[in-house]
Amino acid sequence: MLTDDQLNKIETLQNECEQVDAIRLKLNWDMLRQRDDQSMDFFHEEHGELVAYLALYGFGSTVEVCGMVRPCERRKHHFSALWLRAMQSIQEKGFQKILLNAPATSISAKEWLANQPCAYTFSEFQMGWEEQLLEESKDIFLRESQPEDSNFEVQLDVLAFNMTEADGKLHNERVKKNPDEHHFIIEVNSKKIGKIRVSRKDEEAFIYGFAVLPEFQGQGYGGKALRNIVKKEHEAGCSVQLEVETKNEHALRLYQQIGFKTLQGQDYYLWAEQ
């Protein structure tokens, strides 16, 4: 696992980069805090201070890449050096697809990406909930996921997030190991219709993996489940955030109706060479 010192240095560098560049980095802290493989993290330090950092996040056969360099140390090839080391690890682990993540307004990230063999593929919005009155819905039921729900959860990941079944199983196994995450099954009349996952840390709640079976979409169940989750997390004293692909207009409208506002865009680039 990453040490407390390493995590503190990552957070310090993140805060500096975000303040100077007026961006929000997507560092997947829920995964960093649960690292069991340090070959996914790459550091460059000088005089005991972290100057550059690159992280890999595995999702089945896909790996996502995020990194940062101290503003005063840029254009010294620190990130490129880390990327060479990361590529070796990616190849050794046999990942088949590489997605590079960059905040939509990060000038330095876009300059580096412009010189790499990659192509823009999609964007996500990071959204935060602004407080408003939410009525609890009584005609749906949210219960904690059980081991026997695993196949159902994988099925939803395949249908909603274009995962292969193998990737869905690997992803489900990984997220279930995180003690900060809570997995819920959405039920209507005792029938399983969807799922939602909440990662809770330091009075912040992040919603992930929200999906409803196609035959139950368009009937208001998803919105009711989301309202109940947001209401529960807010009453527990947590801020609430989620992510959504920018092209998913239906989901965007739903989130906006409930009170979510866009905080930052994240762009993803597909690496063309491996």
Rank of each mutant, 00 (worst) to 15 (best):
E203L: 14
E46V: 09
L263A: 01
Q96Y: 00
K93M: 05
G67K: 03
I10A: 07
E11F: 09
A251V: 01
A109F: 14
R35Y: 07
Q217P: 04
L242F: 06
L270T: 10
F42W: 07
Y269I: 09
L142A: 06
N151W: 10
D4R: 14
G223D: 08
G259N: 00
K224P: 03
K191D: 04
S190G: 06
C118L: 14
A119H: 10
E46D: 11
T164A: 06
L84A: 12
G67L: 03
I90K: 04
L263P: 00
F216D: 10
K9N: 01
N162V: 00
E136T: 07
D4I: 13
E245R: 14
V175M: 11
T262A: 07
V198S: 12
Q256V: 07
N28V: 04
G265A: 01
M40L: 15
T3D: 02
E73P: 01
Q155L: 09
P214V: 08
L156R: 10
L27Q: 04
T12C: 01
G220A: 11
E64Y: 15
G60V: 12
K76H: 06
E46R: 12
L134H: 02
A119W: 03
A160N: 07
Y120H: 14
G168K: 09
E130Q: 13
A225Q: 13
F125T: 02
D139H: 15
Q266F: 09
E181M: 14
Q146A: 15
G194H: 12
G259W: 00
K177D: 11
A22W: 00
V51S: 04
G168I: 09
P147D: 01
L263N: 02
E18D: 05
A160C: 08
V154M: 12
N15F: 14
D41E: 14
E92K: 07
E249Q: 14
A119V: 15
P214K: 12
Q219T: 00
Q19T: 05
G58W: 04
E235N: 13
N8L: 08
T62F: 02
L50T: 08
V188M: 08
G94M: 11
L134D: 04
K195W: 13
V188I: 15
G58M: 08
Q266G: 12
N228E: 10
I229L: 03
A52E: 00
L7C: 03
K232C: 07
L226H: 01
E111G: 02
V230A: 05
W129Y: 11
Q132D: 05
T262P: 10
G259C: 01
S123H: 05
F95K: 08
R227N: 02
F184A: 02
S150W: 06
Y269E: 14
C238V: 04
M1G: 13
K93S: 05
I140F: 02
I23S: 09
E46M: 09
K97N: 05
D37R: 08
D21R: 04
M1Q: 06
L32W: 04
E124R: 12
A205W: 02
V175W: 06
E203D: 11
L84I: 10
R197F: 12
S137H: 15
H77I: 00
Q217F: 02
F260H: 07
D36I: 12
K93C: 03
H234Q: 11
V51P: 02
S150V: 09
L159A: 11
H44M: 11
D157S: 15
K110C: 01
E235H: 13
K224Y: 05
Q146N: 11
S199P: 07
L13N: 00
E49F: 01
L170Y: 12
